[in-house]
């Protein structure tokens, strides 16, 4: 029973995806339709147009299994022979180093800013 509920809710989430695709025609900005769908669903929840229970289980499953949806694209890497060359190794190192810096700086900034805000609050 639970599986059917999840599938139905994922179907319902597609309504917002399609609305996002439709809305994209009217908005000349480079915003992806899935992002517009996110925005529309958020508005619908806030304005009580739909109930949280209608989408909650489906959304939870999609977010929990996010890794699964990346796997096909990861297999697609074999189409890019360059990645397996010397330059490819360079690119992997670039990404590794940059990601470490990004995470480190973001974490330290977040700790600094939130600590400061707490102090001000006292």
């Amino acid at each position: 029973m639970k599986i059917i509920g999840v599938i139905l809710q994922i179907g319902f989430l597609h309504v917002f995806l399609f609305l996002g695709i439709a809305l994209k025609y009217f908005i000349p900005l480079p915003i992806p339709s899935s992002m517009l769908g996110l925005f529309l669903l958020f508005v619908a929840l806030c304005c009580n147009i739909i109930k949280l229970e209608w989408v909650e289980q489906g959304a939870k499953w999609l977010m929990a299994e996010l890794l699964l949806f990346f796997i096909p694209s990861a297999v697609g890497i074999v189409n890019y022979q360059q990645i397996f060359s010397l330059q490819g190794i360079g690119i992997v190192f670039l990404i590794l180093i940059s990601t470490m810096i990004v995470m480190g700086v973001t974490a330290l900034t977040a700790e600094k800013v939130s600590a400061k805000r707490k102090e001000e609050g006292h």
Binding site: L13, F16, L17, G20, S34, G37, L38, A59, L62, L66
Partner: peptide, 10 residues
């Protein structure tokens, strides 16, 4: 990935 992005509204 597309409906999963929409789901982040929750």
């Amino acid at each position: 990935l597309a409906p999963a992005t929409v789901a982040f509204a929750v």
